[in-house]
């Protein structure tokens, strides 16, 4: 089968059947891999019925869908990181309702020694919860790093003129890696990388996406249907998950912790100045003309930084647009029209 088709299948299956779910891209995937159990990222059910009777509807719909998935009871255990207030609420409700779970805190300034030590302590707590043995962790780190390198290599190819993959294709690679067995994902990405030299390039105005999560691929298709190509996505269910590698040596948990220093920055755990630097750097590296803020409605961490980040991007000549979404089907057409207008502004 064509690797992209298999990746697409994994996205459609949404990790169904896995025993453990993890909620955030800051969850150390290595420990899940080392647990020896099947696991998947929690990206939510389609309905929010159970969740809406547990948490107010002015919290982001993504989190409510995730809560729904946790309350439906298919996952045996749930792990994650306490990032935004909504995730804390969702984690608290799940645990209060008896879902077996373990969440860790991510210190905000990991460049300090004591913060790093604190993070390692939190990782130990999680490793214990998951039953991840130290030897297993080392091996798991290698697999996860290999997968990251492969996905990042693919991402780097998007920096060139007429990239060999569209934004939709690249996103399938990224999202599927959170929903299927790691080793199989790695094989498929490598296979795909081998076929790329023979592919023709994607053309159109170069744009980047900024936001948290995206699970309705149709929204991404709608964006590219308007004649642009998404060359980088700063999404927590996309590139942000993979960006940045662990140091090559050290004790396993320390390596995992240290990776958090160099990984892509999320607004929940990163001061604005660092975030702005990282975003503008990526905008330059991928030579983008425009940035689309595709934000989940009620997503505070991103909404807070939006005005200042928009200003920063515009100051380096990157045009911006904002679209708040709850990922409903009715939004697909609205987004297409909005992007159409945006592309005109970009002169595309």
């Amino acid at each position: 089968m064509d690797p992209l088709a298999e990746l697409m299948q994994a996205v459609k299956a949404r990790g169904r059947g896995a025993a453990i779910g993890y909620v955030c891209s800051y969850t150390p995937e290595e420990l899940l891999e080392a647990s020896g159990e099947s696991y998947t990222r929690v990206i939510g059910s389609n309905s929010t019925e159970l969740a809406d009777s547990a948490i107010p509807t002015f919290t982001c719909r993504f989190a409510r869908r995730c809560l729904q998935q946790m309350l439906e009871g298919e996952l045996k255990r749930v792990v994650g990181a306490y990032t935004c207030d909504t995730v804390r609420g969702v984690a608290s409700i799940a645990s209060w309702r008896g879902v077996e779970s373990c969440f860790i805190n991510i210190p905000r300034d990991i460049s300090k020694k004591r913060s790093l030590e604190y993070l390692v302590r939190e990782l130990e707590k999680l490793a214990e919860f998951l039953g991840a043995a130290e030897g297993g962790v080392e091996e798991a780190i290698e697999v996860c790093e290999e997968d990251r390198r492969a996905v990042m290599r693919l991402a780097e190819l998007r920096a060139v003129e007429e990239p060999p993959v569209t934004g939709v294709e690249a996103y399938l690679v990224e999202l599927s890696g959170m929903l299927m067995p790691k080793r199989r994902h790695l094989e498929l990405v490598q296979e795909l990388l081998d076929t790329l030299p023979s592919r023709s390039g994607a053309t159109g105005a170069r744009v980047m996406l900024i936001g948290s999560t995206l699970t309705n691929i149709k929204l991404l298709e709608a964006i590219e249907a308007e004649g642009c190509v998404v060359v980088y996505d700063d999404l927590c269910t996309g590139c942000r998950f993979y960006w940045g590698l662990a140091p090559a040596s050290g004790k396993p948990l320390e390596r995992i912790a240290a990776r958090y220093v160099s990984r892509a920055k999320c607004p929940c755990v990163t001061p604005f100045s660092e975030r702005a630097e990282y975003i503008t750097e990526q905008a330059r590296r991928f030579r983008v003309q425009g940035a689309i803020f595709l934000l989940q409605k009620f997503c505070d961490p991103h909404l807070f930084e939006y005005p200042a980040l928009r200003e920063r991007l515009e100051s380096i000549g990157v045009e911006t647009m904002l679209f708040e979404t709850e990922e409903g089907e009715a939004e697909v057409e609205k987004l297409r029209i909005a992007v159409g207008g945006f592309i005109e502004r970009l002169g595309g």
């Binding site: 609420g89 409700i93 505070d300």
Partner: peptide
């Protein structure tokens, strides 16, 4: 949001 998330519970 942090205060209100417990309301129904």
């Amino acid at each position: 949001k942090p205060y209100s998330s417990w309301a129904y519970e």
